[in-house]
Design a protein around this nucleic acid. Structure first.
Lengths: 103, 103
DNA sequence: CCGTCGTACTTCACTTTTGGAAGTATCAGG
DNA sequence: CCTGATACTTCCAAAAGTGAAGTACGACGG
């Protein structure tokens, strides 16, 4: 398995990088992520479990049955990749800009 | 749809970025990609069609029924993202480095 | 103590995507 | 016309994703 393959095995699944992107803005609760991303609650639970197992994020217990999800160092290290992909995606929307200095 | 979402819509599907990665080394033929990636021929054909439709790659006719797939400017612009993800993936393989100064 | 509310999931039935094997199309060479 | 190489297409079963509904748990009001 190549390095890229290993990375995609962890964050390449549907919603994986989108969840990480949201968490780059700071810790979020389950309901926040669900409403923000528009992802089904079962998918979200599955992805969060996988990403936690992979050491990308961790659960922070808040009050009783409430908790927050926050990126670990490993998860924060994905910022470069997320930014690079986001810039590329933004450039596509413009209609064909090969040079995009906007960030 | 966010910029990241738009990007993942194009190259976020299984094998999408892996194909782009191979093509970053230069144009490749169908059979090369298939053997190199170990992807099923149906998946490969489907992804190549989608990526071509998205303007990420183009077909270069070679001899009779042989052709090569090459990245367009748009496809080449994905190099940053691929490299960022590859680096992240490589850091994970080390075994648990929260601080990765490698590379 | 009991019913209700909010938050975090789990379960189920259904659709879409993926993966593997086998078949088709096209052209060159003999 | 038959064989071989290359590039796909088609078919079917398995895996993954989706949406709706249900469960678990603790706080809160009566």
């Amino acid at each position: 398995m190549s390095d890229l393959g290993a990375a995609l095995d962890i964050v390449g699944a549907r919603w994986g990088l989108l969840i990480v992107e949201r968490l780059l803005d700071g810790p979020q609760r389950y309901g926040d992520l669900q409403r923000d991303l528009g992802v089904g609650t079962n998918m979200l639970a599955t992805r969060l479990r996988e990403l936690e197992a992979a050491g990308v994020l961790s659960r922070l217990p808040l009050r009783h049955n409430t908790r927050a999800y926050a990126l670990t160092e490993r998860g924060l290290a994905l910022r470069e990749a997320v930014v690079a992909l986001r810039r590329w995606g933004a450039a596509q929307g413009v209609g064909g800009a090969q040079d995009g200095q906007a960030l």
